[in-house]
Design a binder for these strands. Structure first.
Lengths: 156, 156
DNA sequence: AAATTTAGTTCGTGCCGCCAACTACTGTCA
DNA sequence: TGACAGTAGTTGGCGGCACGAACTAAATTT
């Protein structure tokens, strides 16, 4: 009676609830590290190397002006730095400071640990299939929008 | 070369990306209906019937004061209404206006349609297993936090 | 050289979320 | 009954977030 979840949970409803759950985990972990979820996402994205503002707008689905503010605040907290792009004097690359890199790794690990815990009950076969199915959905979206979400071509 | 996704996508990374994708879909659909994602979530939650402020704070993981503002703005737009609770003169129940109910259903259907489209490529077996696996994860969280996410006991 | 495009910032607006403090009502317990 | 703790919700102040429009400056095109 506590959790009458099992039966008719439609796929879409399951996905929506899962998204809310992940978002919540992200929020909790972010707060533990004194970050907003947006800052945490920014830091995690930069672990792969410096990215320019325009690249970030695409990765984060944000307008340029929104990103300026986000990076401003992160820079003010010493998490990231703007470095000038040698090849284009208009552009700048955003990179993690040492402190930002440390926090990024810890926050990432924290999220991974909690999600791992939530998925702990799943049999290995289900885990693999879950990862594969999600991968297919992500690929479907990538095809639809013609753009990859996470790792983008480095340097750009 | 377009989508080199297939290989080592860890389960947790897959879940995080999926969450971002769903969130993005939610945002797009909300915007189509002139809603913020938070308003859309509120409306969808109220489709199951009126809920009090305290119940909403638990369902949405918000502080009371955040919710006051959210409901204020939704009420100002004619989407929801505060009705006094007959049994407790402190409390109020939030219910959908007819307009709000219409928008809620359309927004819900819009999200479902897009997610359905993204999942269209999956073989039926994968779909079922995906839904089941997600259900297990949600159940694990429900057990951890001792509380159900969506439908809460009606009336309260 | 002029025109266009691209990279990023600034400014103004509104929404969101938190906390602390507050009002008003409910239930309990003496 | 009457004080008193707990609960339901609001208010006010703060900072973060996201957008669009207008802007500067550098790169690219013509």
């Amino acid at each position: 009676m506590v959790a009458t979840e099992a039966p008719g949970l439609s796929l879409t409803e399951a996905l929506v609830r899962l998204a809310h759950l992940v978002e919540q985990v992200y929020g909790e972990v972010s707060r533990e590290h004194d970050l907003t979820p947006q800052q945490a996402q920014l830091l995690c994205l930069l672990v792969g190397g410096p990215i320019g503002m325009t690249g970030l707008t695409r990765a984060l689905h944000l307008e340029k002006s929104s990103l300026t503010g986000l990076v401003d605040r992160a820079e003010k907290r010493g998490l990231v730095a703007r470095v000038r792009d040698a090849r284009d004097r208009r552009a700048c690359l955003i990179e993690l400071t040492p402190e930002g890199a440390g926090i990024a790794v810890r926050a990432h690990d924290g999220v991974a640990a909690r999600l791992e815990m939530l998925a702990a009950g799943l049999p290995a076969g289900h885990r693999d299939l879950l990862a594969a199915a999600v991968g297919e959905i992500l690929a479907a979206d990538t095809a639809r929008t013609g753009r990859a979400w996470g790792r983008l071509e480095p340097g750009r």
